[in-house]
Design a protein around this nucleic acid. Structure first.
Length: 482
DNA sequence: TGGGGTTAT
DNA sequence: ATAACCC
């Protein structure tokens, strides 16, 4: 059995520092303390650097579960443990465990290629996300017990802002405890830890909390994962992936340039996606260094000031975006893709299936959706990714019957969805769809907001602006007769 | 390429 | 309503 968490190495090892690291610290204006120098006994008495334009320094952890869907499947069926396992959606292996990776299976490989590479590969169907979603929220809730500021990224990643928690622990350090402080996990770039540097101390405490988080995930949920600790989300995310699987890494500020320069291409920078990469390449920008040194003015003209300034900061490892608590989901959706759907009856059947699952989910959540949306993808040989959608408000009498099981809420909602469908698709002409998706959003808590109370004025549907006809967001909903 | 999510415009 | 980003 794998243990959840072990310290991979300790702070202040006996290795000689190399010249580059010594120079990093010289540039940062540090004293260059040796391990034998006395460690300050008073935690608050150390001068410290404030990076990133005066904003106070943060401690962020990025937690990234190992091959999450495969782990959930191995928990559901322990007989799968030890075997090469892939999780299949349609004809893709969307993820696989490490036994499978050792045998050459990669994420998003087609089933055909994966079986060719690895004939012993065991496949399980992962098109129903229910169990993954439930486990995903258990992880987020566990992390929220450490600190309430947890931001989800997909089903298998979370950011936690540890700044406050770290400060509390640091101030509670007893005399002598500071000099006994150790790192949990790896230190990126094998950088020397300086306990006289308050930024190092805070990040070390962050690494301890990260280890406690991973230990709790393993003991309470049976899940392993990686963690990265750094001073912002970008760096935390980049450093969490340095030692995989089931390991953690802390980034000290002096090594942040080494980390971002380790990226081989701007497309590896989180926040720079497919489209922006293409536009950057058209400007001759390929490496992180290219982006760092490219003219800001020209970049702003090409990409717009917002994107240009944001990604150029990213290229220097700067990211002031806060960890935004995700809270409950903003939307619920279910989709199904297929080779061909070309009749209205066929579409209606698929839509009914999607809606039935959604109603179960939304019922469990407790909140009520006020908007419904239908999304389609039309067959086209070239432009593959493009989707079209229509949405409309859910009639209030339908919303009210949502929680109460005995009324039929399917029929009126399917009627609405089919009207949205016919608004997008001319059913009198031949059509070829490859995806249908239904989304319930604009979720509202079922508050009994009485007139004159705070709740009344905080409820958008009730407050004065809703009577003035200025709610432009509503005007884009397509009008569907009830 | 799947089955999800988010925010910005 | 779409387009970009994330997994």
């Amino acid at each position: 059995e794998k243990l959840g968490v072990e310290p991979e190495e300790e702070a202040g090892r006996d290795e000689e520092e190399d010249a580059a690291k010594a120079m990093d610290r010289a540039e940062a204006g540090e004293a260059g303390c040796s391990r034998d120098a006395p460690v300050p006994e008073e935690p608050g008495g150390v001068p410290w650097l404030v990076p990133e334009g005066g904003s106070s320094s943060r401690v962020i952890v990025h937690v990234d579960l190992d091959c999450f869907y495969a782990q959930v499947e191995m928990i559901s069926n322990p007989e799968l443990k030890g075997k090469p396992l892939g999780v299949q959606q349609k004809y893709l292996v969307v993820t696989c465990n490490y036994e499978a990776r050792k045998l050459g299976v990669k994420k998003l490989m087609t089933v055909r290629d994966a079986k060719e590479k690895c004939p012993q590969l065991v496949l399980v169907n992962g098109e129903d996300l229910t169990r993954y979603r439930e486990m995903s929220y258990k992880v987020t809730e566990l992390l929220e017990e450490f600190s309430p500021v947890v931001e989800r990224l997909g089903f298998d990643e979370n950011f936690v802002d540890l700044t406050e928690m770290v400060e509390k622990r640091r101030q509670q350090l007893q005399s002598g405890e500071l000099s006994a402080l150790t790192v949990w996990g790896h230190v990126y770039n094998d950088q020397y830890v300086n306990l006289h540097d308050i930024l190092h101390v805070r990040l070390l405490i962050g690494s301890q909390i990260a280890a406690e988080m991973r230990e709790a995930m393993y003991n309470q949920l049976g899940l392993t994962g990686c963690a990265g600790v750094a001073s912002n989300k970008l760096l935390a995310k980049l450093v969490s992936g340095v030692f995989k699987p089931n390991q953690q890494t802390v980034l000290l500020p002096e090594s942040s340039q080494v980390l971002i320069q380790s990226l081989n291409h701007v497309k590896e920078m989180p926040g720079i996606g497919y489209k922006t990469t293409k536009r950057l390449e058209a400007l001759g920008i390929r490496s992180v260094h290219d982006l760092q040194t490219f003219s800001s003015k020209i970049l702003e003209k090409e990409l717009g000031i917002s994107v240009a300034q944001r990604i150029q900061k990213l290229s220097f490892g700067e990211d002031n975006s806060p960890v935004t608590p995700s809270g409950p989901p903003q939307s619920f959706s279910e989709e199904d893709s297929f080779k061909k759907c070309s009749s209205e009856v066929e579409a209606k059947n698929k839509i009914e299936e999607l809606l039935a699952s959604l109603l179960n989910r939304v019922c469990q959540d407790g909140r009520k959706p006020h908007t419904i949306r239908l999304i389609i993808r039309r067959y086209s040989p070239e432009n593959h990714c493009s989707r079209e959608s229509r949405q409309c408000p859910i009639p209030s009498h339908v919303i009210q019957k949502l929680g109460t099981g005995n009324y039929d809420v399917m029929t009126p909602m399917v009627d609405i969805l089919m009207k949205l469908f016919r608004n997008m698709v001319n059913v009198k002409m031949p059509f070829h769809l490859t995806l249908l998706s239904v989304c319930l959003c604009n979720l509202k808590a079922l508050t009994t907001a009485k007139k004159g109370t705070i709740d009344y004025y905080l409820t958008p549907s009730l407050s004065t602006t809703s009577h003035s006809g200025k709610r432009s967001f509503k005007m884009k909903d397509t009008h569907v007769e009830d």
